[in-house]
């Protein structure tokens, strides 16, 4: 029994309603958490939520501090916090439950015809981690990679351009491969981990009642994986950023 995602065609473009739905929910959750944390924020008497968010900020500051000079990395602090919060919530969102509806050929959602892939009837999964979609994690990767190249060109142009032909001009293809491998590894690692976690949950669900202990173990492990992946993503973001903007000292 396979689940498909609710897709509609609108003006000739394919839309995945579940992904859109989950992206919006994740964004709202992140914003509400952040907004709650700064509500009634004070200098001398921080609330518990404020402490939590300040802990997150310091955590990201530490990540930046390990890769580059904290003064140079200061502009990317907000990006890092937004990324780690968004990814953490997105990675864990698909874990607790699923919403599956049964649809027949010709079913509609808000007046839009659902694409059932040519089948007569299908089970549609509405609830998933947004990062379990390769396009979503690809978009986050694109933000980071484009930003690293832009920042490299803007703040460190000479060294940034020079690093493509270092140590010799013959290394240019290798350096280009390296630059292409970065975004691929960044997005596919995230997508692969979260997607695999959800597939595994689907498989375990297929075991019925016997699967409950395995499901508990796997859910716990998925929480761990989700947290680690969001950490790794932000860590690599800062590493790439530092490679682009900091010139290496040659003596």
């Amino acid at each position: 029994m396979d689940h498909i995602f609710p897709e509609v065609h609108l003006g000739g473009i394919r839309f995945d309603l579940a992904a859109i739905f989950m992206i919006v929910i994740t964004s709202i959750i992140v914003f509400v958490i952040a907004k709650l944390a700064v509500r009634g924020a004070s200098v001398t008497n921080p609330t518990k939520m404020q402490n939590f968010l300040e802990w997150v900020i310091e955590f990201v500051q530490n990540i930046i501090g390990t890769t580059m000079d904290l003064k140079k990395g200061r502009p990317y602090l907000t990006l890092g916090i937004a990324l780690i919060m968004y990814l953490f919530v997105a990675n864990l969102l698909g874990l607790p439950f699923g919403i599956i509806t049964h649809a027949h050929e010709g079913a509609t959602f808000l007046g839009m015809t659902l694409d059932l892939g040519g089948e007569e009837e299908a089970h549609i999964a509405w609830w998933k981690s947004p990062t379990a979609d390769v396009a979503v994690s690809g978009a986050l990767m694109a933000i980071v990679i484009v930003l690293t190249h832009v920042e490299g060109l803007r703040r460190n142009r000479k060294h940034y351009l020079k690093h493509y032909i270092e140590p010799y001009a013959a290394f240019l293809p290798l350096n280009i491969i390296k630059e292409i491998a970065k975004p691929l590894s960044l997005s596919l690692r995230l997508y692969g981990n979260i997607f695999a976690g959800e597939v595994m949950i689907g498989v375990i669900m297929g075991m019925g009642w016997f699967g409950i202990p395995a499901l508990i173990v796997w859910q716990g492990f998925s929480i761990f994986v989700g947290a680690i992946q969001s950490f790794v993503f932000v860590m690599l973001t800062m590493v790439y950023m530092s490679q682009a903007i900091v010139h290496e000292e040659h003596h």
Binding site: D16, I23, A139, A142
Partner: peptide, 11 residues
Amino acid sequence: DIVWSNFFIQL
């Protein structure tokens, strides 16, 4: 199967 609209929506 890549749904490209997701990419831009996420952006």
